[in-house]
Nucleic acid binder design. Sequence first.
DNA 1: ACCTGAACACCGTTCAAGT
DNA 2: ACCTGAACACCGTTCAAGT
Lengths: 255, 255
Amino acid sequence: MAEYGIGSGDTEAITDGTGATQAAGTSASKSNRPRKPRDSLNKALIIDAALVIAERDGLEGLTFQALGNELGAHATSIYRHFRDKDEFLLEMLDTLRDRSYGDAIEPTGNWREDVRLLAGHIRAHYLRYAQFAQQMSVRSTHRPIEFTNLELTLAALDRAGLTPDEAVIYTRLLGNYIRSMSSFEAAVTCLEPELRAKDRMQMQFGAQALALDEFPHLVSAATSLLPLDDPRIFDIGLEAILDAIEALGASRRSN
Amino acid sequence: MAEYGIGSGDTEAITDGTGATQAAGTSASKSNRPRKPRDSLNKALIIDAALVIAERDGLEGLTFQALGNELGAHATSIYRHFRDKDEFLLEMLDTLRDRSYGDAIEPTGNWREDVRLLAGHIRAHYLRYAQFAQQMSVRSTHRPIEFTNLELTLAALDRAGLTPDEAVIYTRLLGNYIRSMSSFEAAVTCLEPELRAKDRMQMQFGAQALALDEFPHLVSAATSLLPLDDPRIFDIGLEAILDAIEALGASRRSN
DNA sequence: ACCTGAACACCGTTCAAGT
DNA sequence: ACCTGAACACCGTTCAAGT
């Protein structure tokens, strides 16, 4: 029978025979904690605690137990403020978003520059909260800032000379490119460093060991292959898309 | 006290007072199952069962319990064949990969077409096993086919006229673009349909309701906004990158 | 790198009870 | 949309025991 409500496994009397359990002196650890005053908890407080935990212990350490510990409250008290863990995570993402780009981007008068600024903003946000990137990319919560960003993009593409139909398509492309590439980069960042190093080694050594006549290009490029999260890649792809937009807009104008 | 080793909750005597439990007639359900003969289990068999479960119940239904149920074996017998669940999932991804692109792509003589074919192959694989897409995109297991694909790409870019340094950069860009955009598209596909419909509605209605003078482009584009997983987007972005490569290669040649 | 059963640590969630 | 404690269903994992 597992015991519940105990601090996250640090000082439990495991069945190893030692029998000695140092009293959990770390933080508010269950029973001998005074009852929290009414209304002393709220969403903002809980989300702040969650961020501390996520940055210290990673996303997998972010459990309701740990949250209760961090707050000096019972794990289940969170259910008074969020319906379940999924809703909790979504609201957390929203809060993070507000903190990252609270103020909208000011149009510069140069449409390419506007898109670049927006892309940089979003990418920085994903890399900053890399642990949550995968969730962020897909689960869009429709906040005002999203509409502002969409308007900025559509306006930029209009100024580039695209038709409304084309603008809608390239807006989708830009949005997906920015989100998916940033999310990917963030996910790579989150991999354990040793694993990433090992992966690269295997790739380079594996490529070097190939038959030169079967893999001529790869063998000679083996040592110069780039890591998955090379930071230059994002902008190079973005410029390619911007070039395509510019060319398309120019062709529209010359007709 | 939870009872273990029981079929996944379908016929358990819950404490609801009814007391009536229909005998678990579904499949091999624990106690009254004859012991599996020695060596009757193996990796391939387990992975096949896992695929059945994942396609039927989704990724979150793929537990060791369910796996044992499907195999008519005890849940923990899987530990004899895989170190832990992570190793099991990785090997599963490898197997899927082998099934999807067992045979390499034959170069067509047209470098753009080669890259297109490769991209289409990989994207189709991600969409087919959409549940696993997020894991697949980042955790590369270095199988021979990866080297073959790299050689194909590097050769294509060489023929496009890029220098070796440039080829390495654009190889990385293409690889990341294909993986991250496909993974994104697959992730959207996996969202519950109602949720996706609701998201789109909120977006369209939200955009329509905005102030026309503050969001002129967005208001008029509101009803024509594209869904996140519009299938045309992938190729449009890919062509933009290919155009950039072609232009860069041409400029190298003219020097 | 055999298969099973019992047990354990942990995690999300519910519900009756305390303030 | 108050806070706590006990309980529950489930999930990955370990370990001693059976063949």
